[in-house]
């Protein structure tokens, strides 16, 4: 059980008959797909692909769980995540003190998911979509409020959700999925 080299021979160009055969073969395959294309095109605005659960889409903060450890900001490879300090009222003592929370700049984010994986309390999580439209670049800086609510999946409103399954004959097939982002 080990890799081994295997010298193979190349099929060579043959006689005129082989050429005619090759041409016919190619034309027949072309016609076969012309008659039955076996498409799996996503007709985008009419349909949208509902991505599976583990998909690394937009990253959302669950503020209640955040313990301000700043591990996410430190591990972010593109420095998209930054910690900000905001005053928080301590419910027990009633005193106001400064606490750190992450905010994100989606101009820089590369969706590597390191921050989600490094978060010790699972305060950060992915939502399974990424095609959110912004009207201008400054909207892509998320403040703490925006960071906590899942972005509106506007494209979802125009079409029906489908998901792709791997199929032996067609490669991928579209099947209707349940509503929702």
């Amino acid at each position: 059980m080990a890799p081994k080299p295997a010298v193979k021979t190349l099929p060579r160009r043959g006689s005129l008959i082989d050429g005619v055969k090759g041409n016919l073969q190619a034309l027949i395959v072309g016609l076969k797909y012309f008659l039955d294309p076996k498409r799996f095109t996503l007709v985008y605005p009419k349909e949208y692909s509902k991505l599976p659960k583990g998909y690394r889409g937009f990253i959302i903060l669950n503020k209640q769980k955040c313990i301000s450890c700043a591990a996410c900001a430190r591990i972010c490879p593109s420095a998209a995540m930054k910690m900000i300090r905001i005053p928080v009222k301590d419910p027990k003592t009633g005193k106001t003190r400064m606490k750190q929370y992450p905010v994100i700049n989606y101009q820089r984010c590369i969706f590597c998911g390191y921050c989600v994986d490094v978060c010790p309390t699972e305060a950060l999580y992915h939502v399974p979509y990424h095609d959110v439209v912004y009207e201008n670049l400054s909207e892509m800086f998320w403040d703490l409020e925006t960071f906590q609510k899942e972005p509106e999946y506007k494209t979802a409103k125009e079409g029906s959700p489908v998901k792709f399954l791997i199929h032996e004959e067609y490669g991928l097939i579209k099947v209707p999925a349940e509503e929702g982002g």
Partner: peptide, 13 residues
């Protein structure tokens, strides 16, 4: 359209 069909696409639509 033909090319699209053979190539498993939709083509102009």
């Amino acid at each position: 359209k033909t090319a699209a069909r053979v190539q498993r696409r939709l083509g102009p639509y």
